[in-house]
Amino acid sequence: MNPQRPANTFRTPPQQGPRPKTGNASAQRPASSGRASSAEKSASGKLAKVRRFIRERPLLERVYWTLLKTFLWLFFGSFAYVIALKYVPVWITPLIVTRWVDTFGTDESSHVYKKWRSYDKISKEAALAVVSSEDQNFPTHWGFDFDEIQDAIKENQTRKRPRGASTISQQVAKNVFLWNGRSYIRKGLEVYFTALIELIWGKKRILEVYLNVAETGPMTFGVEAASQRYYGHSAASLSRDEAARIAAVLPNPRLFSIRKPSNYIQRRTRQIARQMRYLGGQKYIRNL
Results as ranks from 00 to 15, higher is better:
Arg117Gln: 06
Thr98Asp: 09
Tyr113Pro: 03
Ser110Pro: 09
Val90Ala: 06
Asp102Tyr: 03
Ile96Asp: 02
Asp102Leu: 11
Val112Ile: 11
Val90Ser: 00
Thr93Ile: 05
Asp107Lys: 07
Leu85Asp: 08
Glu108Met: 02
His111Ser: 04
Arg99Glu: 13
Phe104Met: 08
His111Lys: 08
Lys115Tyr: 03
Arg99Asp: 14
Ala84Lys: 15
Glu108Ser: 03
Thr106Ile: 08
Trp116Tyr: 14
Trp91Met: 14
His111Arg: 12
Ala84His: 13
Leu95Val: 12
Phe104Thr: 05
Lys115Asp: 08
Thr106Cys: 05
Phe104Ile: 15
Trp100Leu: 07
Thr98Pro: 02
Ser110Thr: 02
Leu95Met: 09
Leu95Lys: 05
Leu95Asn: 09
Arg99Cys: 04
Tyr87His: 11
Ser109Arg: 05
Trp91Ser: 14
Ser109Tyr: 07
Phe104Arg: 08
Lys115Asn: 12
Trp100Gln: 07
Gly105Phe: 06
Tyr113Lys: 05
Val101Met: 14
Ile96Val: 11
Phe104Gly: 07
Arg117Glu: 08
Val101Gln: 15
Tyr113Thr: 01
Thr106His: 11
Trp116Pro: 01
Thr103Ser: 06
Val101Asp: 07
Lys115Val: 09
Pro89Met: 01
Arg117Thr: 01
Ser109Asp: 14
Ser109Thr: 10
Thr98Leu: 08
Lys114Asp: 07
Leu95Arg: 07
Lys114His: 13
Ile96Pro: 09
Gly105Asp: 11
Arg117Met: 09
His111Ile: 03
Thr93Ser: 04
Tyr113Val: 00
Val101Leu: 15
Ala84Leu: 15
Asp102Phe: 03
Ser110Glu: 11
Leu85Cys: 07
Pro89Trp: 03
Val90Trp: 03
Val101Glu: 07
Phe104Val: 14
Ile92Ser: 14
Ala84Phe: 15
Val101Gly: 01
Tyr113Ile: 01
Lys86His: 12
Leu95Gln: 11
Phe104Glu: 04
Val112Gln: 00
Lys114Gln: 12
His111Asp: 11
Gly105Ser: 08
Gly105Thr: 06
Ser110Trp: 12
Val90Leu: 09
Gly105Val: 09
Arg117Gly: 01
Pro94Leu: 02
Glu108Pro: 06
Lys86Pro: 04
Leu95Pro: 04
Lys115Arg: 11
Tyr113Gln: 10
Trp100Val: 00
Val101Pro: 02
Val112Met: 03
Val112Ala: 04
Trp91Thr: 14
Ser109Gly: 12
Phe104Cys: 05
Lys86Tyr: 07
Asp102Ser: 13
Trp116Lys: 00
Trp100Arg: 06
Arg117Phe: 04
Ile96His: 00
Trp100Ser: 05
Glu108Gln: 07
Val101Trp: 10
Tyr113Met: 04
